[in-house]
Design a protein around this nucleic acid. Structure first.
Length: 920
RNA sequence: GGGCGGUUAGCUCAGUUGGUACGAGCGCUCGCUUCACACGCGAGAGGUCACUGGUUCAAGUCCAGUACCGCCCACCA
């Protein structure tokens, strides 16, 4: 069982996770339960890559909690589960981190060189991997670490290269010179997705580009002054031939302008089309061209065309055969093409250009302007569009099958609305820039032959020795691949692909559930679907990577903002575990998660989890204490006469909860499943059943203990996926007296319950509801009349509708309500009417002789008020039922229910009126 | 410019096929060291389900629109 011989200490009065968790986890590992157990149906979850920087984020803790719950549930269902803990290389994050270290030492990666850089990264990463494994242990994640898949391991390297080569040979990967997003701080290209647009307050500079006349000479003196303010647009202040005004937010790119474009229909500038203007920083003549893409309304209506540094301009340039000038160096300074601005940082250059133009009198005006500026998601630097030669995936052909798989329902998203998001993106997908100029990552498996004029380019899975064409020396491409290229292979590469015969692949692909946050649908989920469908096409078991994409929301800080180190509002999962225990954290995360919605993690919720764990612990302690070592805990079968009404009630409620939990889990409503189970356990089992059981046990009846042990056992099974440690610990203690009928040595591999409908008992449920009503009514009156808590008072229960139950449970009612003597009587006339307080219930009433304990007038007023309310209800229901439309159109069941309600309300009203009449 | 969420008790949030708001946790009020649990027990207070209109016998739940808050996508100089 567990390593300490099963000789456990007595249960302390408070559950202490620190004493339990490590021992329990070791027990699971030693039992080998994290490995596939050989069930009939495979159930696979691939763990998403945690953050390789070694910090455990709450988002990852949530992912782990949800996935582990699913894995544990399926394992208990008897499925053959495998949970592969994948660790991606997280290229950008790790690169940035090590670069920051270098930065602090005052050097750059280019100073120390590729090899030394990678050495430093490996040191760091190896340490991180160990920490990640440890973190998952702390989270109670039942992942099989022996299968850990790290992207840079040789097997995964091969998967990446094989994919690259296949795509390359199919013409879906190509190298091309295009406009890309350049991160001058990270000094690498980025994909569109890695650029975040943020509003930045800046200026709109209106710049005059002097026009040349037909002969190419500068036109005579530009007109001074303006037509004045608002009238400009309708009536240009710039007479034909003098100059053209453009509006720009990036004056530093003016030296790269190769044209000015206007709309062919624009009256203001039409006469200039075909003429030349001077690029104002260097007086270089550039043409004025006409293009339909120009918006007449925007800016001045004329656009400076900078094909080297703007996507739109690049396209205009292509249409008009314009030259492309690149004035930016990789580090964000201007290069030699920028003339006298060469060497300046781009923002410095902006100021200088403006100064110079102002000096020349070419700035017409400057307006404040707020616009969206692209920033690198990782480095935060303002991204510069530049034209550069990069590797691309032509994703169009991959998107088709990826769209179809979701359209035809082979892959389903939970919640469904994200399918739209996914499809919209996929349908408008653009080529994917996959080359990065960072060093830590999968190197692009392409080699170039530099020998003579050979010029051979080859893509290969294995490192080639020499050029196959000429035998010359080869040089590998310097770039690495976008992290998401390798992450996109996750579902099959972690299971052994490209080895088509890999056992795991055959057994566990396709996987069942992909669980992750909605923020990476495009980055990751979409890429996994595309690349898996491509690599696994024709695979025997099916080509899709997973059947269900369950998307959780973001975990936000207690203040509702995104957790961020710069806000200082990060909640560390390990710290929470330290303080409250893993189960408490998992309870908090699970109970806060509804598909697709964000949640806040607060101490309150974690405390609720801890409290619940403690409640479980103490309920178990009670059962154990009462039972003693030799109790017979065999549950009597259905129909056994030893089972009393309250036993049948709690067993019925238990089975309804079992059914509900199962149903909820199947539709991924984890939070609701947990809540329902908790509510049953706490509000019904602990608060009522155990209290009732105590009385009987004192009288020597052992049956309630068997019932309680049974309920406990089944509830622990239901809760195990969510709170693995405390449930395992209690279950094992319980199993010492009550071994698992199927022989499971530990809860982790015990059977998940299926609802036993034979235990359903509506009559018992109705009866106990009545008993609870009676008890509550007496307690209520006691509290309202300020009877001291310890004092016993006499009470009459008039049980119209539940006479038998009330009779059977009279002693219990008395005990729970502190009522002695307690009389159960058949009719109101059998109870006293003088000096009494009466509470009228749907099932009868309670009458408390409390002469002198209350104010008669107040009592009369209270009854009067209740009568008013009851009359209102009777009137409303009566009106509803009198409505012919309702009677004919509503379903019969609904009408019947309303009729019943009316009957109940009427009888309650009568009771109240009688009471009022009697107390006079 | 498109698209998607949110708006329910003081706070944070559930509420999936329309049928009494079963609401939950925390907080609050009152009372309890009742022999499993004060990480607890008992009793309470607290809501025009953002707004307007519509469909329906019936709407927090469906439809249309409005207002705030938030997110995503998009080459507006």
């Amino acid at each position: 069982m567990t390593s300490d011989n099963g000789a456990r200490e007595e249960m302390r009065s408070a559950y202490d996770p620190s004493e339990v968790e490590e021992r329990i986890y070791r027990g699971w590992e030693e039992g080998g339960f994290f490995k596939p157990q050989g069930g009939d149906r495979p159930f696979t979850v691939i763990m998403p890559p945690p953050n390789l920087t070694g910090e455990l984020h709450m988002g990852h803790a949530l992912t782990a909690a949800v996935e582990d719950a699913l894995i544990r549930w399926h394992r208990m269902l008897g499925d053959d589960t495998v949970w592969v803990p994948g660790v991606d290389h997280a290229a950008i994050a790790v690169n940035a981190l090590v670069e920051r270290q270098l930065d602090e030492e005052g050097v750059s990666r280019h100073d120390i060189g590729r090899e030394a850089f990678l050495e430093r990264v490996w040191d760091f990463v190896n340490a991180s991997r160990a920490r990640i494994a440890e973190q998952h242990r702390r989270l109670g994640a039942s992942a099989d670490w022996e299968r850990e898949a790290f992207t840079l391991d040789e097997a995964r390297q091969r998967a990446v290269r094989q994919t690259f080569v296949n795509l390359y040979e199919d013409g879906l990967i190509f190298r091309g010179e295009r406009m890309i997003n350049w991160d001058p701080v990270g000094q690498t290209a980025l994909s569109d997705l890695e650029v975040e647009y943020r509003d930045v307050e800046s200026s709109f500079w209106y710049v005059r580009y002097p026009a040349l006349d037909e002969d190419g000479d500068p036109a005579p003196s530009p007109l001074e002054g303006e037509g004045g303010g608002e009238g400009e647009r309708a009536q240009p202040a710039t007479p034909a031939g003098d100059y053209i005004v453009i509006a720009t937010t990036r004056p530093e790119t003016i030296p790269a302008d190769t044209a000015v474009a206007v709309h062919p229909e624009d009256e203001r500038w039409r006469h200039l089309i075909g003429r030349m203007v001077l690029e104002p920083t260097s007086d270089r003549p550039i043409p004025v061209i006409a293009d339909e893409a120009i918006e007449i309304e925007a800016g001045s209506g004329a656009l400076k065309v900078t094909p080297g540094h703007d996507q739109v301009d690049f396209e205009i340039g292509e249409r008009h055969g314009l030259e492309t000038i690149n004035i930016l160096a990789p580090d964000g300074t201007l290069n030699e093409h920028a003339g006298r601005y060469a060497g300046l940082d781009r923002f410095e250059a902006r100021d200088r250009v403006v100064e110079d133009l102002e000096a020349k009198g070419l700035i017409e005006k400057i307006e404040p302007y707020t616009h969206a500026v692209g920033h690198s998601q990782r480095s935060g630097a303002v991204v510069e569009p530049i034209v550069s030669e990069q590797w691309w995936v032509n994703v169009g052909p991959l998107a088709g099958p990826a769209i179809a798989a979701v359209r035809d329902g082979r892959i389903a998203f939970v919640p469904k609305r994200f399918e739209r998001t996914y499809l919209h993106w996929m349908e408008n997908i653009r080529d994917w820039c996959i080359s990065r100029q960072i060093w830590w990552g999968h190197r692009i498996p392409v080699w170039y032959c530099d020998a003579g004029d050979c010029g051979e380019t080859i893509a290969a899975v294995e490192d080639p020795d020499a050029c196959p064409a000429c035998g010359g020396a080869l040089r590998q491409d310097e770039d690495t691949l976008d992290t998401w290229f390798s992450s996109g292979l996750w579902p099959h590469s972690t299971l052994g692909w490209p080895d088509e015969d890999a056992e795991d692949l055959a057994r566990f692909y396709p996987t069942q559930v992909m669980e992750t946050g909605y923020d990476i649908i495009f980055f990751w989920v979409a890429r996994m679907i595309m690349l898996s469908l491509y690599n696994m096409r024709g695979f025997e078991g099916g080509d899709i990577p997973f059947e269900t994409v369950y998307l959780h929301g973001l975990v936000r800080a207690p203040d509702g903002r995104k957790m961020s180190k710069s806000f200082g509002n990060v909640v560390d999962p390990l710290g929470v575990i330290e303080q409250y225990g893993t189960d408490a954290l998992r309870y908090a995360l699970i109970s806060g998660t509804s598909p697709g919605n964000d949640q806040r993690i607060t101490d309150d919720r974690v405390e609720a989890g801890r409290n619940f764990a403690n409640k479980l612990w103490n309920a178990a302690r009670l059962v154990r204490t009462l039972a003693g070592p030799d109790a017979d805990l065999e549950l009597p079968p259905v129909g056994d006469e030893r089972l009393r009404r309250e036993d049948r009630w709690v067993l019925s409620r238990l089975e309804r909860t079992v059914g509900l939990a199962d149903e909820l889990l199947r539709s991924y409503q984890l939070a609701e499943a947990l809540r329902q189970t908790r509510d049953f356990f706490w509000d019904e089992f602990a608060d009522w059943y155990l209290e009732l059981a105590k009385l009987r046990v004192r009288e020597g009846d052992g049956v309630p203990l068997a019932v309680a042990a049974h309920v406990l056992d089944r509830v622990l099974r239901l809760l195990h996926p969510f709170m693995p440690f405390v449930t395992e610990e209690i279950w094992q203690r319980l199993a010492e007296a009550r071994p698992d009928p199927e022989g499971a040595p530990q809860l982790i591999v015990a059977r998940y319950p299926a609802a036993d409908t034979a235990r359903h008992d509506e009559a018992a449920e109705r009866d106990l509801a009545a008993v609870q009503d009676f008890v509550r009514a007496i307690r209520n009156e006691r509290a309202a009349k300020r009877v001291e808590a310890g004092r016993w008072i006499e009470a009459y229960v008039v049980a119209d509708g539940a006479a038998e139950a009330a009779g059977d449970l009279a002693a219990a009612i008395g005990q729970l309500a502190r009522a002695r003597p307690l009389h159960v009587v058949a009719g109101a006339s059998d109870a006293p009417s003088e000096g009494v307080v009466t509470a009228v219930l749907p099932v009868g009433r309670v009458v408390l002789p409390m002469a002198g304990l209350f104010d008669l007038e107040a009592e009369r007023a209270r009854l009067g008020k209740q009568i008013g309310e009851a009359r209102d209800e009777v009137r409303k229901l009566g009106a509803k039922l009198a409505n012919e439309q309702f009677r004919t159109r509503a379903p019969a069941a609904v009408v019947a229910r309303e009729e019943e309600r009316l009957a109940t309300a009427s009888s309650r009203l009568r009771g109240l009126e009688e009471s009022l009449a009697e107390i006079i």
